[in-house]
Simulated scan of single mutants.
Amino acid sequence: MTADTRITLVRGDITRQSVDAVVNAANSSLLGGGGVDGAIHRRGGPEILAACRALRASHYGRGLPTGQAVATTAGRLDARWVIHTVGPVFDPHEDRSGLLASCHRESLRVADELGARTVAFPAISTGVYRWPVEDAARIAVETVRATATQVEEVRFVLFDDRAHEAFAARVR
């Protein structure tokens, strides 16, 4: 993060954000799913799915690896791009925090390559992947702060009060 990068928090729907890039907490297939992934595909329309299918047919035949990120069009979203990243499934017996940090770092790297200045992140891995939201907030905020980027605003868009409170405690 550069000295000029702002971290902001919003309680709401990530698919309603007006930003350069929306980060999608995707599954490795890139073909849509539940939670944030399903919402982005539904609201963004078939253009996103078509772009994801093209990625699967070319570079990501086996899917997008956990911790990596790749961009597509944003379709009908009020954004230019969707940056898809696959978060790790939480495992209390194996430390996968490096993979969760990589999701944020790699998403910012892709944003820089695209020239994105505003990026909206969800709370990656905190839904069906069961990552404890307080720990996910710590990893996300620490990683964004430690990553050199040209992004001017990182906006964490949190779906509920609990996630918003967890991120707010880390941003202070």
Rank of each mutant, 00 (worst) to 15 (best):
V157K: 01
S29G: 12
A26Q: 11
H164V: 01
D4M: 11
H84L: 08
L158I: 09
I48M: 09
D4N: 13
R117V: 06
S97E: 13
T73R: 07
A50E: 15
R155V: 06
V86I: 10
L49F: 05
T73E: 04
G35H: 10
T72N: 05
T143W: 08
H164E: 05
T126E: 03
L31R: 14
V89N: 02
T149C: 09
W131Y: 15
T66C: 08
A71F: 05
A51Y: 04
F156T: 00
R109S: 14
A21V: 07
H93Y: 12
C103W: 04
S102D: 14
V82R: 01
A74C: 10
G127D: 10
A54Q: 15
I124K: 09
V22K: 03
D95T: 07
V82A: 05
R162I: 10
V151I: 02
E134N: 11
A71R: 04
L55I: 08
G33P: 11
A166T: 14
S18A: 11
A120P: 11
S58Q: 14
A146F: 06
R105M: 04
G87N: 13
V19Y: 04
G98K: 00
R162A: 15
S125G: 11
H104T: 05
A26E: 04
T126F: 01
H104F: 15
R162V: 13
G63L: 10
V36R: 06
D13V: 12
D135T: 03
A51S: 13
V110I: 15
G61M: 04
H93F: 12
P46D: 13
E47T: 11
E113D: 15
G63I: 08
A123V: 07
E47L: 08
D112F: 03
W81A: 08
N24W: 08
D135V: 04
G63D: 11
D4W: 07
D161V: 00
S29W: 03
A136L: 09
G127T: 13
Y60E: 07
G127M: 05
V133E: 09
T8Q: 06
V154M: 02
A50Q: 12
T149H: 12
I40E: 03
L49N: 13
A148H: 15
T147S: 08
L31S: 14
C52S: 10
V128A: 14
E152Q: 14
I83T: 11
D13P: 13
A51G: 14
R130E: 08
V154R: 02
G87H: 12
R105H: 13
S18D: 14
G63A: 10
C103G: 13
L100V: 09
A101V: 01
S28I: 08
G45R: 00
R155W: 04
G98T: 12
T143E: 13
